[in-house]
């Protein structure tokens, strides 16, 4: 199969179509508007429905409706638009319906700015909306992963009947890399939980399932515990003998991979643990780390550290955890190596 040179946003949108996307409802905002642009052009031709909604609120609720009818549905947004999706995501989680939500992160709170950032980490991994729910959060580090995570996100959303998030950022969205695209699959909306018309159909729950389930607290706890146990994904790069381990996801992890290579060339035993799922956080990945590791360094494109908290929780705070922040600027791999080396010398 030949490689195709694609922009992150376009590749992600094409992968959604090939994953059986039936409805997209959303509202444009930089840096994810190419997702809408691409889908408006290609999704109808592939038999799906594209709606440019009047707002993000409308878009996420269209997704809720399509999901209730058993269809694969998706929305995408960024920055303030992602904030507006949270109520709807909570409703979809509460109704135990599958959906895929893409957040192409941009910098800053409020209006912010359009360049890459990783500041939505807490919002993505802690639920974002009100109440007791979690979303499975996939963090692509390349254009190829933006493609590969799309069918996976839909599959996991349906397996657990829970919304899944793909947490991209402006740099992965705007850059181009060669990709291999999956074959298009056909999806049958006739799930046993889906509302498929009144005649001959049993009662279906497509609003908050808490009204219908005895001992809901235990039920929902068990559901998220199961996801936490079974869905942790990560990549470990030379952590077994590392004196310092970097922890980074998405675009930051690319910088850190280069930092590991740079450091190793100089005899500095640096490693990288890259969370591929941010929730569930890959606590299991830390088991392979050198038991005598001196320090962890969380590398994030944020003004305030966030991922570092999860590293502390995963490691039981037995080893010092520091952070190296990119803020509005993308750090160099050399600067990451220097920051890591400084920890070793403390």
């Amino acid at each position: 199969m030949p490689y195709k040179l694609m922009k992150g946003n376009h590749a992600l949108a094409e992968a959604a179509i090939r994953s059986g996307l039936a409805l997209f409802g959303g509202y444009p905002i930089t840096p994810q508007s190419e997702i809408l642009e691409y889908l408006s052009d290609h999704l109808p031709a592939a038999g799906g429905v594209f709606v440019q909604a009047e707002s993000e609120l409308a878009g996420i609720n269209m997704v809720y409706g399509a999901a209730a009818a058993g269809f694969r549905a998706m929305t995408s947004s960024s920055g303030p638009g992602f904030s507006l999706l949270q109520e709807g995501i909570s409703y979809i989680a509460s109704a135990e319906l599958p959906a895929v939500i893409v957040d192409v992160q941009r910098y800053g709170s409020g209006l912010g700015d359009i360049f890459q950032a990783q500041g939505d980490y807490w919002m993505a991994t802690r639920g974002g909306g009100h109440g007791d729910y979690r979303t499975i959060v996939f963090a692509p580090a390349s254009v190829q992963e933006s493609v590969d995570m799309m069918p996976l996100a839909f599959d996991k959303a349906e397996q657990y009947r829970n919304p899944c998030l793909i947490l991209s950022d402006a740099s992965i969205a705007q850059m181009m890399e060669p990709v291999l695209l999956p074959e298009k699959i056909a999806c049958n909306p006739d799930h046993d939980w889906a509302v498929r018309g009144k005649r001959g159909q049993a009662f279906k729950r497509v609003t908050s399932t808490m009204y219908y389930i005895a001992d809901f607290d235990a039920y929902i706890k068990k559901k998220y515990d199961t996801i936490q146990e079974n869905e942790q994904r990560w990549e470990a790069v030379q952590v077994e003998d590392a004196d310092v381990v970097l922890v980074a996801y998405g675009i930051s992890s690319r910088i850190c991979k280069e930092a590991v290579a740079l450091a190793r060339a100089k005899g500095f035993r640096l490693g990288l643990l890259r969370p591929i799922t941010l929730w569930p956080f890959p606590e299991k990945g830390f088991a392979a780390v050198n038991p005598d590791v001196s320090a962890y360094l969380s590398v994030e494109l944020c003004a305030l550290p966030k991922l570092a908290d999860d590293v502390r929780l995963a490691t039981g705070m037995n080893v010092p955890v520091s952070h190296f922040l990119g803020g509005a600027h993308t750090p160099s791999s050399r600067a990451v190596v220097e920051a890591a080396a400084a920890l070793l010398n403390q």
Binding site: L5, Q174, M175
Partner: peptide
Amino acid sequence: GLVLAEVAMNYGKKVTWVPSYG
């Protein structure tokens, strides 16, 4: 840059293309 990226890709090279942005 795109032409260079695409031709390099078709030569079997790995390639990244990052536009100026902002």
